[in-house]
Structures are given as C-alpha cells and as structure tokens.
C-alpha cells in the first residue's frame, strides 16, 4: 500500500463530513465583478471566486463549444487560450481571467470562413465524435504559432495533453500537419502580394 499522506489542509480524521461543509463566510466580498474579452467582445459578469473559467464560458456566456471531459485537468477537452496561452479552463477560476483575453473555438472562424486548422480537421477527417476537437484545435492553434513547420514527432508531443477516444490520433496529426502547411503557404502568398 502506498502510505502517502494527504495534503495538510485536508480534514482531520474523525470529523464528520457535515462539519466540513461549506463554511459560512460573509456574503460581502464574496463575489467579484470581472471583465474578460472573449473572442474580441468585452464581457462582464459578477461571479463567485469558485466559478471555474470553463463554467463561466459555457454557462454564463453560453459558449458551449468548449467542452468538459474529465473535469480533473487530464483530458484537454476544455482547452482555450487565455492571454495567448493554451490552458485547461477546468483548472482555472474565472476571477483569474479578469482583465484578460480569452479565445475559444467560436472565435476562430472569421467572416463565415473557417480557420485553416478547422478546415484541415474537416479535410483530413481529424474527428469522429468531435468531443475532443475544440480542445485539440485550440492546442494546435497555440502550438502552430510557436512552431510553423513542425515534425510529426513535435505534433504528437504538442497534442499529448489532449485525449481522443475515437480517432487513434492518426488523422488529428495529419490535420495539424496539413494546417501548418496551408498556413505557411498562405503566409507566403500574403507576403508575395504585399510585394
């Protein structure tokens, strides 16, 4: 048996659960007014500090493209961009995003045109049930900005925090590679046009 002790702040042995229930703390100071720019739109809400970012996005703002898979920060289904970094929104409180910028899957398409990564997932059959897809795409979005010409190995590593139960990952990897390529060639065209 593993003799690990549990964290210090856990309840002492022998106390009933009732004694541990939510402690009453005065209602004043409890809620926070937060302002977050989500997909370019400034949103405001009064939230309890314990509200998770993913619940703020899904339940308060009703942007349900961001999914909840494991709810224990293991699966990556809830991945979105907070201030430019891919994060698991089930492991961040909404108050922590105050004053920040969030990008979710809903914010990727522009003027009715899919983002190249979305396009590539479509073209390469990079999804089956689609549950992991928003998280996969947001992770790929963050990754491809840092590495525009990744190897297959690098792609596999980059999406290693996102679990997919359907595809076996093959087509997801293909889709990310294809997205990288189409984004590179789009860049070349833009630069050429500018000249």
């Amino acid at each position: 048996m593993n003799r690990r002790k549990t964290p210090r702040s856990r309840a002492p042995k022998g106390r009933s659960r009732a004694a541990l229930g939510p402690r009453k703390v005065g209602p004043e100071n409890f809620k926070h007014m937060i302002r977050v720019t989500v997909n370019g739109v400034e949103r405001e809400a009064t939230v309890e500090p314990r509200l998770l970012l993913v619940h703020f996005i899904r339940d308060v703002l009703r942007l349900t493209g961001t999914h909840i898979g494991c709810d224990t920060s293991n699966c990556g289904a809830c991945t979105l961009l907070l201030n430019g970094r891919a994060v698991k929104s089930c492991a961040i409180f909404a108050v922590q995003a105050d004053g920040g910028e969030v990008l979710t899957i809903e914010g990727l398409a522009k003027d009715g045109k899919l983002n190249p990564i979305q396009e590539a997932f479509w073209d390469n059959h990079g999804l089956q049930c689609g549950f992991c897809t928003p998280g996969m795409i947001m992770t790929a979005y963050d990754f491809l900005r840092k590495n525009s010409n990744p190897s297959e190995f690098e792609i596999r590593r980059a999406i290693s925090g996102n679990l997919c139960r359907c595809t076996g990952y093959q087509n997801i990897v293909k889709a990310v590679a294809a997205a990288a390529e189409s984004m590179r060639s789009a860049k070349v065209t833009v630069t050429a046009r500018r000249r």
């Binding site: 048996m1 593993n2 690990r4 939510p22 926070h32 500090p49 314990r50 709810d71």
Partner: peptide
C-alpha cells in the same frame, strides 16, 4: 493521489455523482 486517498475519494464520488460536477467549497479570493 495515492491509493489511500482514492478510497476516501470513492465516498466523495457519490456526492459528485449527485451533483454532476466538481465545485470547490466557497472561498474568498
């Protein structure tokens, strides 16, 4: 967590099953 804790968790899981989500206790931030 270790095994020991996981056993404790199984008790807790029942509560989660009822509420369908995992929300921390209230706190001030």
């Amino acid at each position: 967590l270790g095994d020991e804790t996981v056993l404790v968790c199984q008790g807790f899981m029942w509560i989660f099953d009822q509420s369908n989500s995992m929300i921390p206790r209230q706190f001030q931030y």
